[in-house]
Design a protein around this nucleic acid. Structure first.
Lengths: 164, 164
DNA sequence: TCAGATTAGTAAGTATACAAATGATATGTG
DNA sequence: CACATATCATTTGTATACTTACTAATCTGA
């Protein structure tokens, strides 16, 4: 039998889509209230570059599971905002070395608490215990299905060739 | 202290983003293998219209938590594919009545099994029991945070005004 | 009944996502 | 060294997503 809307809405794919929608909305609300105009993706990129100074875009993409074609625009917008510096690598002239700017280092401490609040708020319906179990299950599901997506997380220091 | 990439990657917002990425990839793979070029969003829209013949776009958007501005393009592409018919409503000339076409009714039975397989495959890392608990937690989290998003699910027959 | 508020749909602008193709540069092999 | 291959980044094209603004149509209340 063909499913009804209610059944489709209760499928894992749709529940996840809906929760992600909520997660992004909450992130914008909290970070916006703190006076910043940053997306979840932009924030993750900034933290990744801060943790790995001089990283190139392709490696950055692998670190946080972005598409290589998408990262260019994300970086570009962060350069526009003055939070990232991008320059051609000396070792490999195809690559762009990325660094966070002093401006970001000065602002990070004000953005981070807003991000933390967003993470708590999106799980407002769950107890501490449930939140923990939810994240355990999410981690486990992702670990098993990681290779099924086109932009699989590439751990630093790992060099599995993506069978594609 | 400022978080590292690993810490950001382990935040609920990012885990959900990653799982949603996987969910979409798996959906495309399964539905594509069945010979169809449909997105998760398009499939949900088709099921919603099939369940509610003559529904207008705004109500459809509310049913499956889409943005009103997004649904237009989704419907347009489904009309192009010959799966949806759209005509101006007699009762309200602003509204467009939507109906699935005979073409969709003939193909639905071949698409649905692929969609079901996708739902199972994205949870391949979890046992049946864990999958159930995962979905329970997801439902509970969404129910509590529903109003925090700009495109909250509007249950049919409910008329709460979105406090914004 | 008529002015004001609401609503349906669209449009423009911004930001992910991802596929496929391209240009520039590296690298490995003979 | 020359050539095939691989890689980095970008470009093009398609599809969500959401904001703000706008038009057209409908509804509401005095």
């Amino acid at each position: 039998m063909e499913p009804t809307v209610d059944e489709v809405y209760d499928m894992p794919g749709h529940l996840v889509r809906r929760f992600q929608q909520i997660a992004v909305a909450v992130f914008h609300a909290e970070v916006g209230a703190a006076g910043y105009d940053l997306t979840p993706v932009q924030y993750a990129a900034l933290v990744a570059v801060a943790t790995n100074p001089g990283i190139d875009q392709a490696t950055l993409a692998g670190l946080i599971a972005y598409d290589r074609a998408t990262i260019g625009g994300v970086v570009e917008r962060l350069v526009q905002k003055g939070f990232l510096a991008r320059r051609v690598s000396g070792r490999d002239r195809r690559a762009r070395e990325l660094h966070v700017t002093e401006a970001w280092r000065e602002n990070a401490a004000r953005v981070t608490p807003a991000v933390q609040r967003a993470q708590e708020r999106m799980l407002i319906g769950l107890t501490q215990d449930e939140s923990g179990r939810f994240m355990d299950l999410l981690r486990k599901a992702i670990a098993a299905a990681n290779d099924l997506s086109r932009a699989p997380l590439r751990l630093a220091g790992t060099d599995e060739t993506a069978g594609d």
